[in-house]
Nucleic acid binder design. Structure first.
Lengths: 134, 134
DNA sequence: CATAATACTTACCTTTTTGTACGTACTTAC
DNA sequence: GTAAGTACGTACAAAAAGGTAAGTATTATG
């Protein structure tokens, strides 16, 4: 109990305020962890992409969602959007230095999941109920 | 174009199939990146917690959502739930070895965001529109 | 004897997120 | 002349996620 309290205080110093509702980091975390945000960032680690390149690469995105995702990520300063006023339209998306750092963290997470998928799927099977009495 | 194609193929080998809709990793990623999943995992890095410890720590969770989150994470094999049949109820939640690895990746991500929040908020301000003609 | 605490579940409702289908403006290919 | 490709915007609809309030059983506390 006292221990628990002490840990809580220690965390406040170590890790800022993600645990509290009003911290702006929650907002960023949301942009990055919604359905398409993370995928877009990781995809852009491979270099510049045009809108429809991304659309084809991320199987399942609608144009609307892709556009929306790109916009919020651009506003967050993670993505650079360069549009050439030619016809047909030509727009290039790439990561900013900030975005690249973020994307690398995300890649680690995604890679971990993919690499450990066999272990995860295996662990899933076992429906062991654990009820102990003391 | 040919380059683009080649990169796409290389990625398939490097990174599995997150980009494709039907990959089970998308599902796991979802559990981990929804509103409470990630926070719970990171919180549990500090050690065992009881239900209401978590409730108090994650400001803003409802009991329903916390219970639900804990259940899916338990089913994924990331969380261990041990319940003692005493009254009042006593249930302990902790990370499995698998969950701990995952949580550490998540912590890195969350920490990056928190540490770089000043840079992010600063980058956000500048509403620079970039339209170039060639 | 009413209240609080524990760890939930359930029914119901609201908010958020995501998707669908279409339109735009212009050009190239068939 | 019709279709396709480009990078979106917009109205509307569907789906998913999240929240609220109440209930459950039992004990301890005032």
């Amino acid at each position: 109990m006292t221990t628990q309290q002490a840990i809580t205080l220690a965390e406040r110093m170590l890790r800022g305020e993600v645990f509290s509702e009003k911290c702006p980091s929650r907002e960023i975390l949301k942009h990055v962890t919604n359905r398409w945000g993370g995928l877009v960032l990781v995809a852009l680690l491979q270099g510049m992409h045009r809108f429809s390149d991304l659309r084809r690469k991320l199987s399942g995105v609608s144009e609307k969602m892709l556009a929306q995702t790109l916009q919020t990520l651009e506003q967050d300063g993670f993505i650079l959007r360069v549009s050439y006023p030619v016809v047909p339209p030509h727009v290039e998306y790439s990561l900013t230095p900030l975005g690249e750092e973020l994307a690398k963290q995300l890649e680690l997470l995604v890679d971990w999941i993919e690499i450990n998928l066999p272990r995860i799927l295996e662990a899933k099977k076992s429906g062991v109920a654990s009820e102990y009495d003391e």
